[in-house]
Amino acid sequence: MDYLDGVTILLVVLGLVGIGIYTLMISRSLIKIIIGMQLMVKGVLLAFVLAGRISGNMGLGQSLALTIIVVDTIVAVVALAMAVRVRRRFGTLDPRALTTLRR
């Protein structure tokens, strides 16, 4: 494997996870937050593919990535369902409205 490739992929992984976390912190809509979560997971998927490639077992890396996609979809569905309820109950998707529980 080309060394540069590995580094590039690693940078992409870190970039995706970083952007995802950044989104979680600054976003003003729950939908965007869920997108941020998705971004992070996509980065992780890439990391697994990379790990599989480096350790010489592409198949395993990819099958793990597939499993993660399935699980992540479930989480996303639950999160979206909650977002819908938040919109109905709070009248907004802004996470800054979700501050009734504090101190």
């Binding site: 976390i21 600054i26 979700l98």
Partner: peptide
């Protein structure tokens, strides 16, 4: 108790 801000962003931070 002030550390429990209730803001999601702060929790992630």
């Amino acid at each position: 108790r002030a550390t429990q801000t209730g803001y999601l962003a702060w929790n992630i931070f």
